[in-house]
Design a protein around this nucleic acid. Structure first.
Lengths: 130, 130
DNA sequence: CGCTGTTACTTTACATTGCAAAGTTAGCGA
DNA sequence: TCGCTAACTTTGCAATGTAAAGTAACAGCG
C-alpha cells in the first residue's frame, strides 16, 4: 500500500468553514434571508411563504429564529382590516449575510479548484471497500 | 399605509432552492465533501478530522450518512499494522456535488443582485414592530 | 507475559432542530 | 348569528447533529 502523505499542519481546519453562520445556513432560512436581501422594502409573510415554498408553521418558526438572532425585524400592520406581517432584514442581518455570502464564495471557489469534474484516482493497492 | 404589491405568481418558489441537496448542505458534510472534491486520491479519516475540525464521533456519523447516500466510498486498509480508513467521493458524489455547487452559485448571485449592501428602506406608515 | 496507554475508529445517549398539523383570533358574507 | 376563511402562532414529534463512551488492537515497558 502506498504511503499516504500526512496532511500538513497548516491545513488544519481548512475545510471547517467556521464562518458559515448556521442561523443563515439552514436551507429554509437561507432562502428567507436571500429573498429579504433582495427586497430592501421588506416582504409580507404570505410573499415569503410563496417565494420560499414554506408552510405557515415552518415559516413562522424560522422567522422567529431569525428575529431572536437579530437578523430580521418583524412589523405588524393591517390591510383591509386584516392583520399583516412585514419582514425586513436588520442592518446587522445584512452585515452578517454579507459575511456569510463571502464564506459561501470560498466554498464555491474551493469546490471548483480541485478539478472536481475529473474522475477520482484509483486507490492504490492495499485498500478494500468498507 | 402604502399598498404592498403582491408577489407575482411566476416568482413562486423563486427562493426555495430545491436543488440545495440537504445531504451535502449540512455544514459539517459540506466541508467533508468539499475537501474530498479537492483530493481525488481520497483522504484518510484523520486527515478529514483535522481539515474539517470534527470530533471522531461526528465525522464517523457524517461519513456514514454520505456513504448511505452513495456520495462517498469508504476503503479500509492498514498502515504499520494499524487500521486506516480512506474516504473518496464516488462518481455520483462528484456529480451531485457539482449540481449542488451550481445552486450555491445561484444563491450567491441572488444574494449580490439585490443591492444587499444598501440600507433597508424605511417601512411606510402603518407598521409597528412585533 | 501482563499491564497500561494510545490509536482509530464506531456506537450510543441526548440535546437540538425542522416540519406541518392543530390551534387561535378576528373579519366577512349569507 | 353562524360558518368559513385568512393570517398567523403554537405544539407535538420525528429527524438530526454532537461528543462522550465504548471497542478492538497495537506498542512499549517492566
Amino acid at each position: 500500500m502506498s504511503k499516504n502523505k500526512k496532511v500538513r499542519l497548516d491545513s488544519a481546519g481548512r475545510f471547517a468553514y467556521d464562518g458559515l453562520d448556521r442561523v443563515i445556513h439552514e436551507k429554509a432560512r437561507l432562502g428567507i434571508v436571500t429573498s429579504l436581501a433582495t427586497h430592501p422594502q421588506g416582504l409580507l409573510f404570505n410573499d415569503l411563504k410563496e417565494l420560499c415554498s414554506l408552510t405557515d408553521g415552518n415559516l413562522s418558526r424560522h422567522l422567529q429564529i431569525l428575529q431572536e438572532a437579530g437578523l430580521v425585524q418583524i412589523w405588524k400592520g393591517f390591510k383591509d382590516n386584516r392583520p399583516q406581517t412585514l419582514c425586513q432584514l436588520t442592518a446587522q442581518g445584512q452585515q452578517r449575510f454579507l459575511e456569510y455570502v463571502a464564506v459561501l464564495e470560498n466554498v464555491v471557489t474551493d469546490a471548483l479548484s480541485g478539478a472536481p469534474a475529473s474522475p477520482n484516482k484509483r486507490v492504490s493497492e492495499g485498500w478494500s471497500p468498507a
